[in-house]
Computed example of a mutant assay.
Amino acid sequence: MRGIPPAGGTDSPAHARRSADELLALARGGDGEAFRDLVEPYRRELQVHCYRILGSVQDAEDLLQETLLAAWRGIGGYEERASVRTWLYRIATNRCLNLLRAGARRPHEYAAYQPRIPLPEPSYRREEPSWLEPYPDVLLDEIADRTPGPEARYEVRESISLAFLAALQQLPPRQRAVLVLRDVLEFRAGEVAGMLDTTENAVTSALRRARSALAHELPDSGRESAPLPDSPLERRIMDDFSRAFEAGDVGAIVAMLTDDASLSMPPLPLEYRGPDAIGNFLATIALRAGRRHVMIPTRANGQPAFGCYRRDPGTPILHAHGVFVLTLAGDRIAALTRFVDNSLLAAFGLPRSLRD
């Protein structure tokens, strides 16, 4: 069977005027353009759904394409017992679960990442590497802009924050899927049971366990909330952090941290907690004598972020040095997350190198 048309192709005026029922009928008859128009409204939210479950932007995009291909191939058997959106979520969720069960995550070339200089002893070590990757806000905006009201848009961003995603990745895959479907996407228990081929009681039980585990993993809910995106306070914090990091001013960065701040570097399963531990890491590793950086502002997971570039002494070349994401609490920084995989910069529209 021929492949489905790619997203972003030439819109068909005739299709644009057709109802969902008409598009469905045409798609069942083999009209690929009608199928694209039918599923296009759900493309980005399905990718974000896969990202929440898998924690990887690239894996999420791969699974989105698999989902749409499976839907195209199976459109003739779609019985309309659920909406098209619910049907697509069923396919996407089960594809994600199958990938996690098989342990078939794509190989990560940085899995064996070893820093050239021995790192200070961390405050905490996880048993496994963290495969969580940052999600560019430029993609998230496509969903948030369609969500009515500021509260709903805020909830979209909260449900993709790094703290929430990191906690979510600690849950067993099925609990992870149930919690996202019920608490984030607000599908009914019966709908989720149908998606997962199980009972409502099983869904309710999995949700209860997932909520309990998530409450244990998430940071203190009493922490002061972050400033609004692109607010004067957020911009000031970003400017101050960027200025201090580029100058190698460890003391200025430490002064911006909360008392319980943390620094992590996915996929490395280690974490530095508290201003003293973070300051020592910055002074001895990231910002040790002679290391200078340029920080390019961007946004990830609804949070302020930077593409980080390290100066090459004696040349005008700046080399990629990961992606930094800041988690803010009030007017302080509660977490620094540096993603060490330089290939992630491409998702933010940033190059692997710059000229000074």
Rank of each mutant, 00 (worst) to 15 (best):
S212C: 06
E40I: 02
C50V: 05
I160M: 07
E191G: 01
V39K: 00
A226R: 00
V48D: 00
D183A: 11
L336K: 01
D62L: 14
A329W: 02
P150E: 13
V180Y: 04
R299F: 07
G55Q: 03
S123N: 13
A213H: 06
N301H: 13
I296N: 06
E155F: 08
G32E: 00
A283D: 06
L350H: 10
R52S: 10
Q175G: 08
E142M: 14
D197L: 10
E200C: 11
G322W: 03
A152R: 09
H319I: 11
Y309Q: 02
M256Q: 10
R116L: 15
G251S: 15
S159A: 12
T10N: 07
A283E: 09
G314R: 13
P232C: 04
D59S: 15
R90I: 02
R157S: 07
R211T: 06
D37N: 13
D137T: 08
E158S: 07
P232Y: 06
G248L: 04
I278Q: 02
R116W: 14
G248H: 01
T315M: 11
P229Q: 08
Y110C: 15
D145A: 15
Q175D: 08
P351W: 15
I333E: 01
C96S: 11
V138Y: 10
S19K: 10
S19M: 12
E155T: 07
E191P: 01
R126M: 12
G149S: 08
D259N: 03
A167R: 01
D62G: 12
R36A: 04
P118W: 14
V48A: 09
I317N: 13
A255H: 07
R174Q: 11
R36H: 12
L318T: 04
F306G: 02
A104C: 06
E121Q: 15
L26W: 14
H293E: 05
T204L: 15
L132M: 04
T258R: 03
G330F: 02
Y89K: 00
T86S: 03
A286T: 06
L218V: 04
Y110N: 07
S353K: 13
T315V: 09
P227M: 03
A25F: 11
E80F: 00
S242R: 10
E151M: 14
T198I: 00
R338L: 11
R273T: 09
R311W: 07
E246A: 14
T204Y: 09
V254N: 02
E217I: 08
A277D: 08
N98H: 13
R153C: 02
V192R: 00
M1L: 13
G190V: 05
A215Y: 04
A163S: 15
G248N: 03
R44C: 11
G74M: 09
G77I: 10
D62M: 11
A347R: 06
T147A: 09
G9I: 08
F348K: 00
G8W: 05
P304H: 07
D260C: 08
E158W: 05
C50E: 04
R146E: 13
I253H: 00
A25H: 12
G222F: 01
